[in-house]
Amino acid sequence: MKTILDFSRARREDRPIVMVTAYDALMARIVAVSEADAILVGDSVAMVMHGFSSTVEATLPMMELHTASVRRGAPDTLIVADMPFGTFRQGKHVATEAASRLMQAGANAIKLEGVSGHEDVITHLVEGGIPVMGHLGLTPQSVHQLGGYRVQGRSEEAADKIQTDAHRLESLGAFATVLECVPADVASSITTRLTIPTIGIGAGSGTSGQILVLTDLLGLDDRFLPKFARRYLDGHGDILAALNRYAEDVRTPRFPTDAEVLA
Rank of each mutant, 00 (worst) to 15 (best):
G106V: 13
L112S: 11
E113W: 03
G114C: 03
H118S: 13
H118Q: 15
H118M: 11
E119N: 12
I122H: 02
H124S: 13
L125F: 01
L125G: 00
E127T: 11
G128N: 15
M133P: 00
H135N: 01
L136D: 03
G137H: 08
L138W: 12
P140S: 05
P140C: 06
S142R: 11
Q145Y: 10
Q145D: 12
G147H: 10
R150K: 11
G153C: 10
R154T: 13
E157A: 12
E157I: 05
A158K: 04
D160L: 14
I162D: 09
D165K: 12
A166C: 02
L169Y: 01
L169D: 05
E170N: 09
L172V: 06
G173M: 05
A174E: 01
F175P: 04
F175A: 07
F175H: 07
A176M: 06
A176R: 05
L179Q: 00
L179C: 04
C181N: 08
D185M: 14
V186I: 07
V186K: 02
S189W: 15
S189D: 14
T191L: 10
T191Y: 07
T192K: 15
L194V: 08
L194S: 07
T195V: 03
I196Y: 08
T198Q: 02
G202Q: 08
G204S: 04
G206D: 05
G206E: 09
Q210D: 04
L212F: 04
V213M: 06
V213G: 07
L214C: 07
L214V: 07
L214N: 10
L214F: 14
L214Q: 09
D216K: 08
L217N: 04
L218M: 14
L220K: 10
F224M: 09
P226L: 00
P226Y: 00
P226D: 00
P226I: 02
K227D: 00
F228R: 04
Y232N: 13
L233T: 13
D234G: 14
H236F: 15
D238T: 15
I239R: 11
I239M: 13
A241M: 14
L243I: 10
L243P: 00
L243C: 14
N244F: 13
Y246N: 02
Y246R: 03
E248H: 15
E248T: 14
